[in-house]
């Protein structure tokens, strides 16, 4: 089944949202989603890296030898991350401080590497660009969405502006446990909405589902599709 260009783009937004459905890149989502400002910066930085690396890897997909493809992907990704890092450090020093190590860690972000491996290395340039854009915006949507709730309840502010008066904050929301709670709620909400719309879930999520011709050997490779509950399987091929 060939997907249309629009489908490739919207895939990453909801149906195969990289964070809430594919469960990739959760680490930075939990850590950065404390403030809306930081989350927005992180989301846009990741989107840029993702689009850039997807395009370049797609261009080079016939040149890169299969056996050393991962190091090659990393070199491409690292190039874009260094670019972003320098620009952010030069022009947005506040954001640079807020993101800290997580900006540099985009190099090993599993969304970027995952899309390179699962999509860009097998598809054309335009498709890869759209996929990178969709996935990046999907990530941005989630991290900003979680950050809005966390900043509002935990710090009483929104993008730095005070909404709830001082003294009425629930501190745990900005701490790690709050991050996990909101992550879980966001995941439940998305799945609830998708179920409402009657979308079926394919357990072989994150690829075209053609496990017979796939060399990736992921943990959730499905030889015969028996899961008919329409639910998500707990196991995922990769961890963040």
């Amino acid at each position: 089944m060939k997907k249309s260009k629009w489908q490739i783009f919207t895939n990453g937004l909801f149906k195969e949202n990289p964070v809430l459905i594919l469960l990739l890149g959760c680490c930075s989502v939990l850590a950065i989603s404390v403030t809306v400002q930081g989350a927005l910066g992180m989301g846009l930085a990741l989107t840029f890296v993702l689009v850039g690396s997807n395009v370049v890897i797609s261009l080079l997909r016939k040149v890169i030898p299969d056996k050393v493809r991962i190091p090659c992907f990393i070199v491409v990704v690292a190039t874009f991350v260094t670019l972003v890092e320098m620009v952010v450090e030069a022009y947005l020093p506040d954001l640079y401080d807020a993101l800290g190590i997580f900006l540099a860690l985009i190099v090993v972000n599993c969304i970027v590497l995952g899309r390179a491996e699962m999509f860009a290395s097998k598809n054309g340039v335009v498709d890869s660009l759209l996929d990178g854009l969709g996935m990046g915006l999907g990530y941005t949507l989630v991290i900003v969405g979680i950050a809005v709730v966390r900043e509002l309840l935990g710090s009483g502010t929104l993008y730095g502006f005070r909404i709830i008066p001082e003294g009425y904050q629930i501190g745990i929301i900005t701490q790690t446990p709050g991050g996990f709670m909101m992550f879980g709620f966001a995941m439940a909400l998305l799945i609830f909405c998708l179920r409402k719309k009657g979308k079926k879930f394919d357990p072989r999520i994150g690829c075209d589902g053609n496990c017979g011709n796939c060399a990736a050997g992921c943990a959730n490779a499905v030889t015969d599709l028996k899961t008919e509950d329409g639910g998500l399987t707990a196991k995922e091929g990769s961890e963040s």
């Binding site: 904050q169 629930i170 501190g171 745990i172 929301i173 701490q175 446990p177």
Partner: peptide, 8 residues
């Protein structure tokens, strides 16, 4: 625990 972390 939630109260402890939020309103120490």
């Amino acid at each position: 625990i939630v109260m402890m972390f939020s309103f120490t």
